[in-house]
């Protein structure tokens, strides 16, 4: 590829301290990521696999900008990177509409974008008249659908997905996983993290395997 990478990771390491602030002893420091390097190119779908505890979630948090690495360098081209997170910031005592706005804003949408897409979000979530009721009165399925519909309409430059799964009941699972697959197959840059190599092989242009905090290839 001749394109410039949109994200470039070089020798990234992340450590957690076991006893908070006051521990400097090496045995209390745990390196979740030790040495990870790779580039992400515009428009591609990149898969990241690895076993439980290999450091996938930590890597996602780095890519989403939630935490910063303790060593190594990361170059992002100033694009909006968002982790597809469902029901982020939902408050049980707010109505469906208010939660759409709150969660949408937290995920990086502007008030204007949310107002424009509100009806589509409500239609996708298929909540009916309950949309003006506090979501504590919702069934689990309704809450899940509302969370998915809101996150679906967030349109970041780079989308991060932690395990591609359909959510909700059988019907909605089909609908939601079809929508995610559409996103993956589009021109959008997508990074998918999954413990299943089969899923990754199926969906991604390219994949990286993480083991013990290092990437193998």
């Amino acid at each position: 590829m001749t394109k410039q990478p949109v994200i470039s990771l070089k020798n990234i390491g992340v450590c957690y301290r076991r006893h908070g602030l006051f521990s400097r002893k090496p045995k209390n420091i745990f390196w979740a990521l030790e040495d990870v390097s790779f580039d992400v190119y515009p428009g591609e779908t990149l898969g990241i696999t690895g076993r439980n505890g290999a450091g996938k979630s930590t890597l996602l948090k780095i890519l989403a900008g939630i935490i910063s690495p303790d060593r190594g360098t990361i170059k992002m081209s100033g694009l909006r990177t968002t982790l597809l997170s469902l029901q982020a910031g939902f408050d049980p005592f707010l109505t469906g509409r208010q939660n759409i706005t709150l969660s949408g804003m937290l995920l990086g949408m502007t008030r204007k974008e949310i107002t424009e897409k509100e009806e589509e979000i409500i239609a996708l979530a298929d909540i009916g008249d309950f949309i003006n009721q506090p979501i504590r009165t919702y069934s689990t399925g309704m809450r899940v659908r509302l969370g998915f519909a809101t996150a679906h309409y967030v349109d970041p430059d780079i989308l991060l997905i932690d395990e591609v799964l359909g959510v909700g009941d059988a019907d909605f699972q089909k609908k939601s996983s079809a929508l995610i697959h559409n996103k993956i197959n589009s021109d959008q840059t997508v990074i998918i993290v999954s413990h299943s190599p089969a899923v990754i092989k199926n969906l991604c242009d390219r994949s990286i395997t993480i083991e013990h905090g290092k990437n193998l290839n």
């Binding site: 408050d91 005592f93 707010l94 208010q98 706005t101 709150l102 804003m105 937290l106 502007t110 008030r111 506090p134």
Partner: peptide
């Protein structure tokens, strides 16, 4: 905008 909306939302939720 987020601070403002979040504060309103928290007040509303608290009242509810």
């Amino acid at each position: 905008n987020l601070i403002f909306y979040k504060a309103c939302a928290e007040l509303r939720a608290e009242a509810a």
